[in-house]
Design a protein around this nucleic acid. Structure first.
Lengths: 197, 197
DNA sequence: ACCTTTCGCGTACCGTCGGTATGTGAACTC
DNA sequence: GAGTTCACATACCGACGGTACGCGAAAGGT
């Protein structure tokens, strides 16, 4: 299982490219960062980049997948710490708000993502990671009668969009945790209204 | 008040540029459309474009403002046809869903908008047109005790984001009006839950 | 141990893009 | 009707994303 020099170097180069690209994309946005700057920061040349990725958009895709995986894992972990389905939904949503507000996330995941990859492809990535947990949780709660009967897919999109926009608003607005708690309060009230009575 | 040949030609050129740019941006996205193609379709040259706009991004801004104004007007008109505040909110939200689902709108307004102009600038435009109506309506309803007391700004962002994402989902998904009605049903239930009891 | 192949990456080059500087002729001004 | 303005067109520029090709070291076979 010990990998050779080749494979190790290959992995290191790819990591460096993704890491530096993520940093630069998060700082200044996809369009404002050129390939020369990325490969320079990673200490390689464009030849290396095009050996690992099909182009700039594919590199961005790799960056986005990394970000999405991080967020998705955090949401799943937060939900996993709760026993009941309803508590898992609340904890997951709250953790998403907190995680997606962290610096170096929203611009890649919520602004450039859909524009660079197209909404379809972005949606597929979002679905595969963070949004999937939301859909699963909502589906289970509706099936279990905890949430009042209604189509799950539109509900998932509505809530996902609400939280995405909230994350952008929180991250780009005034500093401080007060707006976060305020927003969470409003969101929690919305979620609470879904419960069957 | 009759304008001279100069002013008339100027207005016509600007209109042609915005019209063709809107068509192309809606079809293929901001990044995939070059200035040569836009000015060619408009029957002018880059000299004309840079005489009217500071650059490609400014041209896009003009396009986005036109789209936003259309949507905002439609929402305001739909709301204006109702007498009571609550009915105005419902009619406005429903009209937004319908209007924003029309072809040639979402990509410019919801996908490329934030990426090209930055989220701050996009937010300002959104606020000045469609989102403003939502904030006003919610504020009035909260002040009037129709909606349960809660911070209006976060609520506005959450609902705005929910409807934006829903519009994207509807426009990029399967055809037909069934999903629209389904989505509206879920959204209407969410809105209903805001009412004070 | 040597030869061959693979492959990870560097170098050099290309078309096109957004942007700018400058020219020009027709419409306005007085 | 001479001078000025202005709405463009023309010509050109650096930089960008992308491609073709070369090279040297690691991997694999005998």
């Amino acid at each position: 299982m010990t990998q050779g020099v080749r494979a190790r170097q290959r992995a290191a180069t790819r990591q460096a490219l993704v890491r530096e690209a993520r940093r630069l994309f998060a700082e200044r946005g996809y369009a404002a960062v050129g390939l020369p700057e990325i490969v320079g920061a990673a200490g390689v040349t464009k030849g290396a980049l095009y050996h690992h990725f099909e182009g700039k958009a594919e590199l961005f895709r790799a960056v986005l997948e990394e970000v999405q995986r991080e967020i998705g894992d955090r949401v799943a972990a937060a939900a996993g710490r709760r026993a009941e389905g309803w508590d898992q939904l609340l904890a997951g949503c709250r953790e998403f708000l907190v995680a997606a507000t962290a610096p170096g996330v929203q611009r890649i995941m919520l602004v450039d993502g859909p524009a660079v990859l197209g909404w379809h492809a972005w949606r597929a990535l979002d679905e595969a990671h963070s949004a999937r947990h939301l859909a699963d949780a909502l589906g289970a709660l509706v099936a279990g009668g905890v949430i009042v009967e209604q189509p799950v897919e539109p509900l998932t999109r509505l809530l996902s969009g609400a939280m995405n926009e909230a994350a952008l608003w929180l991250a780009n607005g005034k500093e401080g945790a007060a707006p976060l708690e305020e927003t969470w309060g409003v969101l929690a009230r919305l979620l609470e209204s879904l419960r069957a009575r």
